[in-house]
Write a protein that binds this DNA or RNA. Structure first.
Length: 416
DNA sequence: TCTGGGGTCCTGCTCCCA
DNA sequence: TCTGTGGGAGCAGGACCC
């Protein structure tokens, strides 16, 4: 006689806040509910202009027709998110503002309020952890939650717990979310998109062929635009098409790791655990300029931006308690080509001047004759600041960057 | 329509060393 | 001394994600 306790089937939920950035804004401006609104751009503090004009009124009473429209938007940028009425015009995340303006010129444009969004992010995640403690952070508006051993987590395949979480988040924030519950993270992620907004989708192992195989290959988290093009060229369009290929064939065409992973993904196999804690690998700051800049002609401006990026990365490191050893730069040229260079130091640092000096050395190894669109500074090989033995501690170069650091190395023609 | 910012992971190449 | 080989580290770039 065996007396083994049978472990319950794995139930993993993926929770995705609905149009998160836009929904947070709509809490502030409820008069925009039901209208097409896009969040993005960021540079022009449009809502501050509106707030100044109507300083005497509460935000909720500023007339909807006072807000700036997409057709009047000038400048670079992409859309962070769009409300569902805007999405009906084909406007969506990561779309250029210019294209969006063509599709839906009447949409209202609001900038991202990261502070406010982060505050709501912390709130909804705390609500979830109170109910189901095994939560994996997947960015500002998404989480995986392990329902397996949560009391009630198995009822109706997870639907009862999902409903409780949805209601609790709405009560705490006024925001809605969509939840998919499945045997693993891969399927849960797909399932959370089945029934948006404010939906719940339950998928069991036996449903893979009916619910997953008809979907486009691009729906798999990990198959992006490049792989999609290649798969289409091989006449593979749906996840079912992918599942019909042999593992060997996929390995031959996509490499050992990616090919084998694709095969598992198509068959709904994924045993990754829900990870509740993780350490950052790198920290970076980058910025796209208002106009393309040239290393010689715009030297002063670029030098100032470069110093500012190094300072901000150093501040991020210190605020979060990390030091790093690999310093790198990223450049995007005006033709969108990207160049990166990095250099590993013999000691860890969180010092802005040290970072700037090393990043400056990296810049010496790239072509600076072409105009630049973006500049970034990255610090990798991170370690917890307090965890290093004494000899690893970095010497501080200077409390403040010296003037020549702002204006490039003496004698050079560019901003380094 | 020209495409943000902050990340992770993987692959291929080169160099160094045994 | 020359050639080969194989591993590890560092670097550059690509793909993908939110």
């Amino acid at each position: 006689m065996h007396n083994e306790r049978v472990s319950p089937p794995r139930r993993i939920a993926h929770l995705d806040m609905d149009a998160f950035f836009a929904s947070v804004e709509l809490l502030r401006y409820p008069q925009l509910k039901g209208l097409p609104v896009v969040i993005g751009g960021g540079r022009r503090k449009v809502d501050e202009i509106v707030r100044q004009r109507f300083a005497d009124r509460p935000l909720s009473q500023i007339p909807a027709d006072a807000f700036p429209l997409l057709k009047d938007y000038v400048g670079r940028g992409v859309i962070t998110t769009a409300t569902y009425p805007a999405r009906q015009f084909g406007v969506g995340s990561a779309m250029g503002m210019m294209k969006a303006a063509k599709l839906c010129p009447q949409a209202i444009v609001l900038p991202v309020d990261f502070e406010e969004v982060r505050r709501f992010s912390r709130t909804f995640k705390a609500v979830i952890r109170d109910i189901a403690p095994v939560v994996e952070d997947r960015g500002i508006d998404e989480v995986f939650v392990d329902f397996t051993d949560v009391p009630g987590g198995q009822r109706e395949g997870g639907r009862v717990l999902a409903r409780l979480i949805q209601k609790s988040i709405f009560d705490a924030t006024g925001l809605t979310c969509s939840i998919g519950v499945a045997p693993n993270k891969l399927i849960a992620k797909m399932a959370s998109e089945f029934n948006k907004p404010n939906g719940i989708s339950i998928v069991h192992e036996a449903d893979v062929q009916t619910k997953i195989w008809p979907l486009a290959v691009r729906k798999i988290n990990g198959i992006g635009p490049k792989s999609e093009v290649k798969l289409h060229a091989l006449h593979i369009h749906t996840i079912g098409d992918l599942a019909a290929q042999s593992r060997e064939w996929l390995v031959d065409n996509f490499g050992a790791a990616y090919g084998a992973w694709m095969h598992d993904a198509a068959w709904g196999r994924d045993d990754r655990p829900v990870v509740t804690e993780s350490e950052p690998v790198s920290m970076s700051r980058e910025t796209t300029f208002e106009r393309d800049l040239h290393a010689v002609r715009d030297r002063a401006e670029l030098g100032a931006i470069f110093t500012d990026l190094c300072t901000r990365v150093a501040e991020d490191l210190r605020r979060k308690g990390y030091v790093g050893r690999t310093i790198g730069v990223k450049l995007r040229y005006d033709d969108f080509r990207i160049a990166t260079r990095d250099q590993t130091l013999d000691h860890y640092t969180d010092d802005a001047a040290t970072i700037r000096r090393a990043a400056g050395q990296c810049l010496k190894r790239v072509d600076l004759r072409q105009k630049l669109r973006l500049l970034g500074v990255r610090v990798g090989k991170l370690a917890k600041a307090g965890s290093l033995p004494a000899p690893e501690a970095a010497p501080r170069v200077a409390a403040e960057p010296t003037p020549d650091l702002f204006h490039g190395l003496a004698g050079t023609q560019d901003f380094r």
